[in-house]
Design a protein around this nucleic acid. Structure first.
Lengths: 210, 210
DNA sequence: CGGAAGATTGAGCGTAGTCAAACCGAGTGG
DNA sequence: CCACTCGGTTTGACTACGCTCAATCTTCCG
């Protein structure tokens, strides 16, 4: 809400593309807010299987999951050169009266995270491959638009495999489904660049999923 | 952590089986903690499709998602007669200095919710029907055990259809998979009663998913 | 130029969904 | 007491969506 709250905290970090901010199992460092760029949050199961849980972007708060256990539950890797700001080192571990305004704000962002997770759960349970992908693209469109960019043209920062993991489908299905949508004239795909032909029509067809 | 914090709040509610505590779209009432019983949290998409997001049980905090938007994002229905306690009516809506200890505690529970959501996402992405169901049963086993009950015998409070929705599979697949596990001698199924034959063996085989 | 990583496309297969029938237990009422 | 309904469950048969395996192509970069 009011980012100026932490203006006096000089705890900025640059995370180069491909570098990890923190890894699953690491001791809890703190909570960060993404200032620029895109990252991916990955869970690694005990047997090595991996799952992308989120693609945090500008404004998102990351590292919250470590609050409970004291160790991070996911590995956070930058998909492109990104900047994050540490908004709280030990927001709840120390009983030393924390900044109430900060905690209030972080709580709101946590609630938004929970809501988002529920929606993804619904998406995975209710939607097929095409619907999932369309919903994801519409979400990306919205978020880019909210940042002042065109809602019709944007670059995906993640590989087909990463996107597939996030949406719980194989990268081949991602590729095939994108091709199919292009064949239907809904969008244009050029590598990772997406041009939505008619955002309104897409929203009307797939908006129920968001 | 210290439930005594709110001991002076007499805001308890009884929710009879089948009744809803709050519905999607309702104005935000408050945050509740489950004191007894089991509920289900359901998202209803714009086109009517439904998705079970969680089965809150004793100790879980519910209603958090309404904090951001001011309206509840899910419908919360009791699967059996349950009791909840309102732990905060408007924890963040009013800037009037809220109880910092309460907010701290709620934040921890929100973080746990986020972690849980990530694990479910991983489960849906990485595991097949059998693995999902086994992971769910092991989770139930643990939670019952944590409440002082046997980890081997417990009652499922939800129907096959509700369980299937939660795990993103059809109720027929739930039924078939349970039958298959019984055939392998891993457990006994009698209606909604589950008897795990060897929790250790199950954990060894499917523990990687939790 | 050659190697690597990502993306696309095809062929074949398998898991889980859909449709349908039968079963079961709990209520309800004739 | 039996017949009936109704919701939940089980099981079968068939289908299809998406996965796996594999080949090809592009782009990027040493």
């Amino acid at each position: 809400m009011n980012a100026a709250l932490w203006a006096d905290r000089p705890t900025r970090h640059r995370v180069a593309a491909g570098r990890t901010l923190f890894a699953q199992g690491d001791g809890f460092h703190g909570v960060f807010m993404v200032r620029s760029g895109t990252l991916k949050s990955v869970i690694i199961l005990a047997d090595g299987r991996q799952q992308v849980c989120a693609f945090p972007m500008v404004g998102d708060v990351i590292g919250l999951d470590g609050v409970v256990t004291g160790t991070h539950g996911t590995t956070m890797t930058a998909l492109e050169d990104s900047h994050v700001r540490e908004v709280a080192r030990h927001p709840w571990a120390h009983a030393t009266a924390p900044d109430p305004g900060m905690q209030e704000h972080v709580s709101e962002l946590m609630a938004r995270d929970i809501q988002r997770a529920h929606k993804i759960h619904a998406l995975l349970g209710c939607a097929n491959a095409q619907e999932r992908l369309a919903a994801f693209l519409l979400d990306q469109s919205r978020r880019r638009y909210a940042q002042g960019f065109s809602p019709c043209d944007f670059h995906l920062r993640m590989s087909r495999a990463e996107l597939g993991s996030y949406l719980c489908m194989s990268m081949e299905t991602v590729s095939r489904t994108l091709s199919g949508m292009q064949r239907k004239g809904w969008l244009r795909v050029d590598k990772r660049h997406i041009s939505l032909a008619d955002v309104g029509a897409l929203s009307r067809r797939f908006g129920a999923l968001l």
